[in-house]
Design a protein around this nucleic acid. Structure first.
Lengths: 231, 231
DNA sequence: CGGCATCCGGGAAGATACTG
DNA sequence: CAGTATCTTCCCGGATGCCG
Protein backbone atom coordinates (compact mmCIF):
# COMPACT_ATOMS: atom_id res chain seq x y z
CA UNK A 1 0.00 0.00 0.00
CA UNK A 2 1.81 3.04 -1.12
CA UNK A 3 0.63 6.59 -1.27
CA UNK A 4 -1.25 6.92 -4.47
CA UNK A 5 -1.62 10.63 -4.45
CA UNK A 6 0.85 13.02 -3.00
CA UNK A 7 -1.17 15.90 -4.20
CA UNK A 8 -1.06 18.08 -1.16
CA UNK A 9 0.77 18.48 2.07
CA UNK A 10 -1.45 20.69 4.19
CA UNK A 11 1.27 21.90 6.47
CA UNK A 12 -0.39 25.28 6.40
CA UNK A 13 -3.97 24.47 7.28
CA UNK A 14 -5.25 26.83 4.60
CA UNK A 15 -5.32 29.78 6.96
CA UNK A 16 -6.46 32.27 4.39
CA UNK A 17 -5.91 35.32 6.54
CA UNK A 18 -5.69 38.93 5.49
CA UNK A 19 -2.56 39.33 7.60
CA UNK A 20 -3.61 42.84 8.40
CA UNK A 21 -3.43 44.58 11.76
CA UNK A 22 -6.58 46.55 10.96
CA UNK A 23 -9.33 45.60 13.37
CA UNK A 24 -11.94 45.37 10.66
CA UNK A 25 -9.70 43.05 8.65
CA UNK A 26 -9.28 40.82 11.67
CA UNK A 27 -13.03 40.81 12.16
CA UNK A 28 -13.31 39.50 8.62
CA UNK A 29 -10.75 36.83 9.42
CA UNK A 30 -12.96 35.80 12.32
CA UNK A 31 -16.48 36.05 10.91
CA UNK A 32 -16.01 37.00 7.26
CA UNK A 33 -16.67 33.56 5.84
CA UNK A 34 -19.94 32.89 4.18
CA UNK A 35 -22.81 32.29 6.64
CA UNK A 36 -20.73 33.03 9.74
CA UNK A 37 -22.35 36.35 10.55
CA UNK A 38 -25.82 35.02 9.85
CA UNK A 39 -25.23 32.12 12.21
CA UNK A 40 -24.34 34.64 14.88
CA UNK A 41 -27.38 36.70 14.02
CA UNK A 42 -29.63 33.72 14.62
CA UNK A 43 -28.11 33.27 18.07
CA UNK A 44 -28.43 36.92 19.12
CA UNK A 45 -31.60 36.23 21.12
CA UNK A 46 -30.42 33.12 22.89
CA UNK A 47 -29.25 29.57 22.32
CA UNK A 48 -30.48 27.36 19.51
CA UNK A 49 -30.04 23.80 18.38
CA UNK A 50 -28.31 22.70 15.22
CA UNK A 51 -31.63 21.98 13.57
CA UNK A 52 -33.09 25.30 14.57
CA UNK A 53 -30.21 27.03 12.88
CA UNK A 54 -30.66 24.96 9.76
CA UNK A 55 -34.33 25.79 9.49
CA UNK A 56 -33.81 29.48 10.29
CA UNK A 57 -31.06 29.73 7.70
CA UNK A 58 -32.56 28.19 4.60
CA UNK A 59 -29.72 27.69 2.20
CA UNK A 60 -26.95 26.72 4.55
CA UNK A 61 -25.85 23.13 4.17
CA UNK A 62 -25.19 20.88 7.13
CA UNK A 63 -21.46 20.59 6.56
CA UNK A 64 -20.96 24.32 6.18
CA UNK A 65 -22.98 24.93 9.31
CA UNK A 66 -20.85 22.40 11.15
CA UNK A 67 -17.67 24.10 9.96
CA UNK A 68 -18.87 27.56 10.95
CA UNK A 69 -20.03 26.46 14.38
CA UNK A 70 -16.73 24.72 14.98
CA UNK A 71 -14.67 27.73 13.99
CA UNK A 72 -16.85 30.16 15.93
CA UNK A 73 -16.46 27.92 18.95
CA UNK A 74 -12.69 27.76 18.55
CA UNK A 75 -12.29 31.50 18.39
CA UNK A 76 -14.55 32.05 21.40
CA UNK A 77 -17.62 33.56 19.78
CA UNK A 78 -19.93 30.79 20.93
CA UNK A 79 -20.02 27.69 23.10
CA UNK A 80 -21.70 24.34 22.80
CA UNK A 81 -23.71 23.28 25.78
CA UNK A 82 -25.70 20.18 26.59
CA UNK A 83 -29.12 20.85 27.98
CA UNK A 84 -30.04 19.00 31.17
CA UNK A 85 -32.30 15.93 30.80
CA UNK A 86 -34.87 15.16 29.66
CA UNK A 87 -34.20 17.51 26.74
CA UNK A 88 -30.61 16.32 26.57
CA UNK A 89 -29.93 17.97 23.27
CA UNK A 90 -27.10 20.28 22.49
CA UNK A 91 -27.45 23.97 21.96
CA UNK A 92 -25.12 26.67 20.69
CA UNK A 93 -24.92 29.89 22.62
CA UNK A 94 -22.99 33.08 22.10
CA UNK A 95 -20.36 34.06 24.63
CA UNK A 96 -20.55 37.53 26.20
CA UNK A 97 -18.04 38.69 23.62
CA UNK A 98 -20.13 37.08 20.91
CA UNK A 99 -23.17 39.07 21.99
CA UNK A 100 -21.09 42.24 21.72
CA UNK A 101 -21.11 41.95 17.94
CA UNK A 102 -24.68 43.21 17.84
CA UNK A 103 -23.87 46.78 16.70
CA UNK A 104 -22.40 45.27 13.56
CA UNK A 105 -25.88 44.19 12.51
CA UNK A 106 -27.26 47.65 13.18
CA UNK A 107 -24.73 49.54 11.11
CA UNK A 108 -24.67 46.97 8.32
CA UNK A 109 -28.45 46.93 8.23
CA UNK A 110 -28.84 50.68 8.26
CA UNK A 111 -26.31 51.05 5.48
CA UNK A 112 -27.68 48.30 3.26
CA UNK A 113 -31.28 49.43 3.71
CA UNK A 114 -30.40 52.41 1.52
CA UNK A 115 -29.33 50.15 -1.32
CA UNK A 116 -31.59 50.29 -4.36
CA UNK A 117 -31.18 46.54 -4.60
CA UNK A 118 -32.54 45.86 -1.14
CA UNK A 119 -35.74 43.85 -1.25
CA UNK A 120 -37.56 43.94 2.10
CA UNK A 121 -40.13 41.43 0.90
CA UNK A 122 -37.75 38.48 0.90
CA UNK A 123 -38.01 35.82 3.62
CA UNK A 124 -36.95 36.84 7.07
CA UNK A 125 -36.12 35.05 10.27
CA UNK A 126 -37.61 36.01 13.58
CA UNK A 127 -34.21 37.07 14.85
CA UNK A 128 -33.73 39.35 11.85
CA UNK A 129 -37.06 40.99 12.45
CA UNK A 130 -36.30 41.64 16.11
CA UNK A 131 -32.88 43.02 15.26
CA UNK A 132 -34.46 45.26 12.65
CA UNK A 133 -36.73 46.74 15.31
CA UNK A 134 -33.74 47.65 17.45
CA UNK A 135 -31.99 49.05 14.39
CA UNK A 136 -34.75 51.05 12.75
CA UNK A 137 -36.67 52.32 15.77
CA UNK A 138 -37.27 56.07 15.59
CA UNK A 139 -37.83 57.62 19.06
CA UNK A 140 -39.39 60.71 17.55
CA UNK A 141 -42.17 58.69 16.00
CA UNK A 142 -42.87 56.85 19.23
CA UNK A 143 -43.04 60.24 20.93
CA UNK A 144 -42.19 59.04 24.43
CA UNK A 145 -44.80 56.31 24.35
CA UNK A 146 -43.94 53.41 26.63
CA UNK A 147 -45.33 49.99 25.90
CA UNK A 148 -44.70 46.30 25.47
CA UNK A 149 -45.57 44.50 22.29
CA UNK A 150 -45.57 40.74 22.01
CA UNK A 151 -44.79 38.55 19.03
CA UNK A 152 -45.55 34.90 18.47
CA UNK A 153 -43.51 33.69 15.52
CA UNK A 154 -43.52 29.95 14.99
CA UNK A 155 -42.54 28.32 18.25
CA UNK A 156 -40.92 31.42 19.69
CA UNK A 157 -42.28 34.42 21.52
CA UNK A 158 -40.60 37.82 21.76
CA UNK A 159 -41.32 40.88 23.81
CA UNK A 160 -40.45 44.30 22.39
CA UNK A 161 -40.15 46.99 25.04
CA UNK A 162 -40.40 50.63 24.04
CA UNK A 163 -39.39 52.90 26.90
CA UNK A 164 -37.14 55.84 27.52
CA UNK A 165 -36.74 56.49 23.83
CA UNK A 166 -35.23 53.06 23.40
CA UNK A 167 -36.52 49.93 21.77
CA UNK A 168 -35.36 46.59 23.10
CA UNK A 169 -36.34 43.10 22.05
CA UNK A 170 -35.88 39.78 23.78
CA UNK A 171 -37.10 36.24 23.69
CA UNK A 172 -39.57 36.23 26.57
CA UNK A 173 -43.01 35.19 27.70
CA UNK A 174 -45.76 37.51 26.56
CA UNK A 175 -46.93 38.52 30.02
CA UNK A 176 -47.68 42.20 30.14
CA UNK A 177 -47.87 42.70 26.40
CA UNK A 178 -50.50 45.25 25.47
CA UNK A 179 -50.83 43.78 22.04
CA UNK A 180 -49.68 40.51 20.51
CA UNK A 181 -48.87 39.84 16.88
CA UNK A 182 -49.04 36.24 15.73
CA UNK A 183 -47.70 35.35 12.30
CA UNK A 184 -44.65 34.75 10.19
CA UNK A 185 -41.79 37.21 10.46
CA UNK A 186 -42.13 38.00 6.79
CA UNK A 187 -45.76 38.96 7.27
CA UNK A 188 -45.02 41.24 10.18
CA UNK A 189 -42.28 42.83 8.09
CA UNK A 190 -44.83 43.46 5.35
CA UNK A 191 -46.87 45.46 7.85
CA UNK A 192 -43.97 47.37 9.41
CA UNK A 193 -41.74 47.95 6.39
CA UNK A 194 -43.99 47.26 3.42
CA UNK A 195 -46.86 49.46 4.49
CA UNK A 196 -49.37 46.66 4.04
CA UNK A 197 -52.43 47.48 6.22
CA UNK A 198 -52.93 45.23 9.20
CA UNK A 199 -56.50 44.54 8.24
CA UNK A 200 -55.40 43.20 4.88
CA UNK A 201 -53.02 40.77 6.49
CA UNK A 202 -55.59 39.78 9.08
CA UNK A 203 -58.19 39.24 6.40
CA UNK A 204 -55.76 36.92 4.63
CA UNK A 205 -55.40 34.97 7.83
CA UNK A 206 -51.65 35.53 7.65
CA UNK A 207 -51.57 37.67 10.75
CA UNK A 208 -53.46 37.84 13.98
CA UNK A 209 -53.47 40.86 16.26
CA UNK A 210 -54.72 40.41 19.80
CA UNK A 211 -55.15 43.19 22.33
CA UNK A 212 -54.87 46.91 21.77
CA UNK A 213 -55.47 47.16 18.06
CA UNK A 214 -54.96 50.93 17.97
CA UNK A 215 -51.55 50.45 19.53
CA UNK A 216 -50.72 47.91 16.84
CA UNK A 217 -51.57 50.46 14.16
CA UNK A 218 -49.21 52.96 15.74
CA UNK A 219 -46.45 50.44 16.39
CA UNK A 220 -46.01 49.60 12.73
CA UNK A 221 -45.17 53.25 12.00
CA UNK A 222 -42.27 53.51 14.43
CA UNK A 223 -39.65 51.94 12.16
CA UNK A 224 -39.07 54.10 9.10
CA UNK A 225 -36.71 52.83 6.45
CA UNK A 226 -33.96 55.26 5.41
CA UNK A 227 -34.28 56.84 1.97
CA UNK A 228 -32.83 54.85 -0.91
CA UNK A 229 -29.77 56.32 -2.55
CA UNK A 230 -30.67 58.62 -5.38
CA UNK A 231 -34.22 58.87 -4.11
CA UNK B 1 -14.11 26.87 -34.93
CA UNK B 2 -16.54 24.88 -32.95
CA UNK B 3 -17.30 25.01 -29.30
CA UNK B 4 -14.94 22.62 -27.71
CA UNK B 5 -16.49 22.68 -24.30
CA UNK B 6 -20.15 22.96 -23.57
CA UNK B 7 -19.46 22.61 -19.92
CA UNK B 8 -21.72 25.24 -18.55
CA UNK B 9 -24.86 27.13 -19.29
CA UNK B 10 -24.83 30.07 -16.92
CA UNK B 11 -28.53 30.77 -16.99
CA UNK B 12 -28.29 31.67 -13.37
CA UNK B 13 -25.38 34.12 -13.35
CA UNK B 14 -24.06 32.62 -10.15
CA UNK B 15 -25.96 35.13 -8.05
CA UNK B 16 -25.03 33.54 -4.79
CA UNK B 17 -27.37 35.61 -2.69
CA UNK B 18 -28.59 34.97 0.80
CA UNK B 19 -32.13 35.75 -0.34
CA UNK B 20 -32.80 37.31 3.02
CA UNK B 21 -34.67 40.51 3.72
CA UNK B 22 -32.42 41.19 6.71
CA UNK B 23 -30.45 44.35 6.08
CA UNK B 24 -27.24 42.84 7.35
CA UNK B 25 -27.68 39.87 5.03
CA UNK B 26 -28.14 42.22 2.11
CA UNK B 27 -25.03 44.10 3.14
CA UNK B 28 -23.17 40.82 2.91
CA UNK B 29 -24.63 40.26 -0.54
CA UNK B 30 -23.23 43.65 -1.50
CA UNK B 31 -19.82 43.72 0.18
CA UNK B 32 -19.46 40.32 1.81
CA UNK B 33 -17.12 38.87 -0.77
CA UNK B 34 -13.51 38.51 0.05
CA UNK B 35 -11.53 41.78 -0.22
CA UNK B 36 -14.59 43.92 -0.98
CA UNK B 37 -14.70 45.68 2.39
CA UNK B 38 -10.96 46.19 2.42
CA UNK B 39 -11.08 47.80 -1.00
CA UNK B 40 -13.67 50.22 0.37
CA UNK B 41 -11.54 50.82 3.43
CA UNK B 42 -8.63 51.89 1.25
CA UNK B 43 -10.85 54.41 -0.47
CA UNK B 44 -12.30 55.92 2.70
CA UNK B 45 -9.92 58.88 2.57
CA UNK B 46 -10.30 59.69 -1.09
CA UNK B 47 -9.78 58.31 -4.57
CA UNK B 48 -6.99 55.95 -5.51
CA UNK B 49 -5.64 54.33 -8.61
CA UNK B 50 -5.73 50.63 -9.37
CA UNK B 51 -2.05 50.27 -8.58
CA UNK B 52 -2.38 52.15 -5.32
CA UNK B 53 -5.04 49.71 -4.25
CA UNK B 54 -2.84 46.78 -5.21
CA UNK B 55 0.09 48.02 -3.22
CA UNK B 56 -2.03 49.00 -0.22
CA UNK B 57 -3.70 45.62 -0.21
CA UNK B 58 -0.83 43.17 -0.36
CA UNK B 59 -2.36 39.83 -1.09
CA UNK B 60 -5.13 40.80 -3.46
CA UNK B 61 -4.53 39.64 -7.00
CA UNK B 62 -5.19 41.81 -9.99
CA UNK B 63 -8.12 39.83 -11.29
CA UNK B 64 -9.89 39.71 -7.96
CA UNK B 65 -9.37 43.44 -7.55
CA UNK B 66 -10.81 44.02 -11.00
CA UNK B 67 -13.87 41.92 -10.18
CA UNK B 68 -14.48 43.70 -6.87
CA UNK B 69 -14.12 47.15 -8.35
CA UNK B 70 -16.49 46.24 -11.13
CA UNK B 71 -19.14 44.89 -8.78
CA UNK B 72 -18.79 47.79 -6.36
CA UNK B 73 -19.19 50.14 -9.28
CA UNK B 74 -22.29 48.31 -10.51
CA UNK B 75 -24.03 48.46 -7.18
CA UNK B 76 -23.23 52.14 -6.71
CA UNK B 77 -20.63 52.00 -3.96
CA UNK B 78 -17.91 53.63 -6.05
CA UNK B 79 -17.31 55.26 -9.40
CA UNK B 80 -14.47 55.20 -11.87
CA UNK B 81 -13.23 58.58 -12.98
CA UNK B 82 -10.54 59.73 -15.36
CA UNK B 83 -8.30 62.41 -13.99
CA UNK B 84 -7.82 65.51 -16.15
CA UNK B 85 -4.57 65.74 -18.10
CA UNK B 86 -1.68 65.64 -17.70
CA UNK B 87 -2.23 62.92 -15.08
CA UNK B 88 -4.81 61.21 -17.25
CA UNK B 89 -4.97 58.11 -15.15
CA UNK B 90 -8.08 56.51 -13.77
CA UNK B 91 -9.07 56.62 -10.17
CA UNK B 92 -11.74 54.91 -8.12
CA UNK B 93 -13.76 56.98 -5.72
CA UNK B 94 -16.50 56.14 -3.28
CA UNK B 95 -19.95 57.56 -3.85
CA UNK B 96 -21.60 59.47 -0.98
CA UNK B 97 -23.42 56.29 -0.06
CA UNK B 98 -20.14 54.41 -0.22
CA UNK B 99 -18.62 56.78 2.30
CA UNK B 100 -21.55 56.12 4.61
CA UNK B 101 -20.24 52.64 5.30
CA UNK B 102 -17.57 54.05 7.60
CA UNK B 103 -19.30 53.12 10.90
CA UNK B 104 -19.01 49.50 9.83
CA UNK B 105 -15.24 49.73 10.20
CA UNK B 106 -15.57 51.28 13.63
CA UNK B 107 -17.85 48.64 15.08
CA UNK B 108 -16.06 45.76 13.39
CA UNK B 109 -12.72 47.10 14.56
CA UNK B 110 -13.82 47.73 18.11
CA UNK B 111 -15.30 44.25 18.36
CA UNK B 112 -12.36 42.43 16.81
CA UNK B 113 -9.81 44.34 18.86
CA UNK B 114 -11.02 42.34 21.86
CA UNK B 115 -10.19 39.05 20.15
CA UNK B 116 -7.32 37.15 21.75
CA UNK B 117 -6.17 36.33 18.24
CA UNK B 118 -5.81 39.94 17.18
CA UNK B 119 -2.22 40.82 16.38
CA UNK B 120 -1.70 44.59 16.20
CA UNK B 121 1.87 44.16 15.01
CA UNK B 122 0.90 42.92 11.55
CA UNK B 123 1.30 45.20 8.54
CA UNK B 124 -1.09 48.09 8.28
CA UNK B 125 -2.15 50.50 5.59
CA UNK B 126 -2.24 54.23 6.12
CA UNK B 127 -6.00 54.23 5.71
CA UNK B 128 -6.35 51.56 8.38
CA UNK B 129 -4.26 53.57 10.78
CA UNK B 130 -6.30 56.72 10.25
CA UNK B 131 -9.55 54.80 10.64
CA UNK B 132 -8.22 53.27 13.82
CA UNK B 133 -7.63 56.74 15.24
CA UNK B 134 -11.24 57.68 14.61
CA UNK B 135 -12.35 54.37 16.10
CA UNK B 136 -10.22 54.16 19.20
CA UNK B 137 -9.97 57.80 20.23
CA UNK B 138 -10.80 58.32 23.90
CA UNK B 139 -11.98 61.90 24.62
CA UNK B 140 -11.32 61.46 28.33
CA UNK B 141 -7.65 60.87 27.72
CA UNK B 142 -7.33 63.88 25.47
CA UNK B 143 -9.02 65.92 28.19
CA UNK B 144 -10.39 68.68 25.96
CA UNK B 145 -7.05 69.26 24.29
CA UNK B 146 -7.41 70.66 20.79
CA UNK B 147 -4.67 70.10 18.28
CA UNK B 148 -3.69 69.05 14.80
CA UNK B 149 -1.26 66.23 14.23
CA UNK B 150 0.26 65.53 10.85
CA UNK B 151 1.35 62.25 9.32
CA UNK B 152 3.56 61.60 6.35
CA UNK B 153 3.17 57.96 5.34
CA UNK B 154 4.77 57.04 2.07
CA UNK B 155 3.53 59.46 -0.55
CA UNK B 156 0.49 60.54 1.43
CA UNK B 157 -0.05 63.09 4.14
CA UNK B 158 -2.86 63.08 6.68
CA UNK B 159 -4.05 65.58 9.20
CA UNK B 160 -5.66 64.38 12.41
CA UNK B 161 -7.79 67.00 14.12
CA UNK B 162 -8.63 66.63 17.78
CA UNK B 163 -11.26 69.12 18.83
CA UNK B 164 -14.54 69.21 20.67
CA UNK B 165 -13.99 65.73 22.07
CA UNK B 166 -13.86 64.35 18.55
CA UNK B 167 -11.03 62.98 16.49
CA UNK B 168 -11.18 63.37 12.75
CA UNK B 169 -8.68 62.36 10.12
CA UNK B 170 -8.35 63.38 6.50
CA UNK B 171 -5.92 63.34 3.65
CA UNK B 172 -4.67 66.92 3.69
CA UNK B 173 -1.63 69.12 3.53
CA UNK B 174 0.25 69.41 6.79
CA UNK B 175 -0.18 73.15 7.23
CA UNK B 176 -0.95 73.97 10.81
CA UNK B 177 0.15 70.67 12.25
CA UNK B 178 1.78 71.12 15.66
CA UNK B 179 3.70 67.91 15.27
CA UNK B 180 4.39 65.69 12.28
CA UNK B 181 5.08 61.96 12.32
CA UNK B 182 6.94 60.55 9.35
CA UNK B 183 7.21 56.81 8.97
CA UNK B 184 5.44 53.62 7.98
CA UNK B 185 1.91 53.08 9.29
CA UNK B 186 3.06 49.93 11.03
CA UNK B 187 5.70 51.86 12.91
CA UNK B 188 3.28 54.52 14.07
CA UNK B 189 0.94 51.75 15.18
CA UNK B 190 3.76 50.29 17.24
CA UNK B 191 4.00 53.58 19.08
CA UNK B 192 0.27 54.14 19.55
CA UNK B 193 -0.95 50.61 20.12
CA UNK B 194 2.19 48.65 20.94
CA UNK B 195 3.53 50.99 23.57
CA UNK B 196 6.92 51.19 21.92
CA UNK B 197 8.60 54.42 23.07
CA UNK B 198 8.97 57.08 20.42
CA UNK B 199 12.64 57.45 21.15
CA UNK B 200 13.22 53.80 20.41
CA UNK B 201 11.58 54.10 17.02
CA UNK B 202 13.40 57.32 16.28
CA UNK B 203 16.71 55.78 17.27
CA UNK B 204 16.02 52.96 14.81
CA UNK B 205 15.44 55.53 12.12
CA UNK B 206 12.01 54.04 11.50
CA UNK B 207 10.17 57.10 12.69
CA UNK B 208 10.74 60.80 12.62
CA UNK B 209 8.90 63.26 14.84
CA UNK B 210 9.06 66.92 13.93
CA UNK B 211 7.61 69.75 15.98
CA UNK B 212 6.11 69.57 19.45
CA UNK B 213 7.69 66.43 20.79
CA UNK B 214 5.84 66.61 24.10
CA UNK B 215 2.56 66.67 22.23
CA UNK B 216 3.64 63.58 20.30
CA UNK B 217 4.25 61.76 23.58
CA UNK B 218 0.74 62.62 24.72
CA UNK B 219 -0.89 61.87 21.40
CA UNK B 220 0.17 58.25 21.40
CA UNK B 221 -1.72 57.68 24.66
CA UNK B 222 -5.11 58.85 23.39
CA UNK B 223 -6.10 55.59 21.69
CA UNK B 224 -6.46 52.80 24.25
CA UNK B 225 -7.23 49.32 22.99
CA UNK B 226 -10.22 47.61 24.62
CA UNK B 227 -9.47 44.76 27.02
CA UNK B 228 -9.06 41.34 25.46
CA UNK B 229 -11.77 38.83 26.25
CA UNK B 230 -10.99 36.86 29.37
CA UNK B 231 -8.43 39.45 30.34
C1' DC C 1 -33.19 13.50 15.70
C1' DG C 2 -28.36 15.53 16.02
C1' DG C 3 -24.10 15.79 14.35
C1' DC C 4 -20.15 14.55 11.73
C1' DA C 5 -17.45 12.37 7.68
C1' DT C 6 -16.95 11.89 2.85
C1' DC C 7 -17.33 12.48 -2.02
C1' DC C 8 -18.34 15.35 -5.94
C1' DG C 9 -19.30 19.35 -9.19
C1' DG C 10 -18.97 24.10 -9.85
C1' DG C 11 -17.24 28.31 -8.95
C1' DA C 12 -14.53 31.72 -6.52
C1' DA C 13 -9.89 32.96 -5.04
C1' DG C 14 -4.81 33.04 -5.73
C1' DA C 15 -0.54 33.20 -8.51
C1' DT C 16 1.71 34.15 -12.64
C1' DA C 17 2.29 35.81 -17.08
C1' DC C 18 1.10 38.72 -20.63
C1' DT C 19 -0.98 42.75 -23.46
C1' DG C 20 -2.46 47.66 -24.79
C1' DC D 1 -0.16 51.80 -15.43
C1' DA D 2 -4.29 49.22 -15.92
C1' DG D 3 -5.90 45.73 -16.39
C1' DT D 4 -6.62 40.45 -19.16
C1' DA D 5 -5.70 35.51 -19.69
C1' DT D 6 -4.74 31.24 -17.89
C1' DC D 7 -4.03 27.81 -14.66
C1' DT D 8 -4.28 25.83 -10.09
C1' DT D 9 -6.04 25.50 -5.64
C1' DC D 10 -9.45 25.81 -2.45
C1' DC D 11 -14.12 26.82 -0.71
C1' DC D 12 -19.02 26.33 -1.08
C1' DG D 13 -23.11 23.71 -1.64
C1' DG D 14 -25.61 19.33 -2.25
C1' DA D 15 -26.04 14.49 -1.45
C1' DT D 16 -25.22 10.50 0.97
C1' DG D 17 -24.11 7.67 4.72
C1' DC D 18 -22.47 6.60 9.50
C1' DC D 19 -23.09 6.68 14.36
C1' DG D 20 -24.98 7.88 18.84
Amino acid sequence: MKLEKVTKMPETPSVRSYDDACGAAHALDLVGERWALLVIRELMFGPKRFSDLRSDLPGVSANVLTQRLEKLREIGVLTRRKLPPPAASQVYELTPWGYEIEPVFSVLGRWAARSPLHDPTLPLSAASLMLSFKTMFDPDRANSLETRVGFRIGEETFLVRIEGGKCDAARAALDGAEVIFTGAAQVIAAAVYGGVPLETLEADGALSVAGDHALAEKFVTYFPLPPKVGG
